[in-house]
């Protein structure tokens, strides 16, 4: 599941990797990822409200978005585009922000990396598209990298099954 970071900087650790095949041609997938009016229609989990989706899609440009969690908490974030190679690849720096676009820290985990670097690739497979997202800490301190690594391990494997065992254990305690 995990991919080695391609940079020589081993200390940056392993990347968090997500792959998904979408049943749509690449040009369409590219469009829905890069145009604010499309992103604003789908980029949020179930039960979240989309508050804002402001897109300036160019190298150096910003996508600024706002979501509201099901329990009514606002959540703002920013992407700054570093590389755009239509319709194949986007590299961006991601951070949490406030409503005005000021940079903030993760609201629940202050040691989470302030900046992360995401690389999105779009590979055409006939009428389908394979989408890959790799996610690494960017200009992170050692503490931030370790925090990311703990989170990454949990997200990908549930810490090698630990999470399932723990949840079963918690259920037992509560019964």
């Amino acid at each position: 599941m995990a991919a080695k970071n391609s940079s020589a900087d081993e200390a940056a650790g392993e990347a968090f990797l997500i792959t998904r095949i979408f049943d749509a041609p690449r040009d369409l997938l590219w469009k829905v990822w890069t145009q604010g009016e499309h992103l604003g229609k789908w980029f949020s989990p179930k039960g979240f409200k989309i508050l804002a989706a402001k897109m300036d899609f160019r190298v150096g440009g910003i996508y600024h978005y706002g979501l509201e969690t099901p329990d009514g908490k606002p959540m703002w974030g920013k992407w700054e585009f570093r590389e755009i190679a239509a319709p194949e690849r986007i590299v961006l720096i991601q951070c949490f922000s406030d409503e005005k676009g000021g940079i903030t820290r993760h609201p629940m985990a202050p040691d989470w990396p302030q900046f992360t670097l995401s690389t999105m690739t779009f590979i055409a497979q006939g009428n389908k598209t394979k989408f890959t997202l790799t996610w690494v800490p960017y200009k992170a301190t050692e503490v931030e990298r370790k925090t990311f690594d703990a989170g990454r391990a949990g997200m990908e494997t549930g810490w090698g099954g630990t999470m399932e065992q723990l949840l079963a254990y918690l259920a037992k305690l509560q019964s």
Binding site: I18, R20, F22, D23, A24, L28, L29, V32, H38, K41, W42, F43, S44, P45, K46, L133
Partner: peptide, 14 residues
């Protein structure tokens, strides 16, 4: 969930 549910939504949207 953030990613999985966003992608499910994207599937429907596509």
């Amino acid at each position: 969930r953030f990613w999985e549910e966003s992608f499910d939504r994207l599937d429907d949207y596509l």
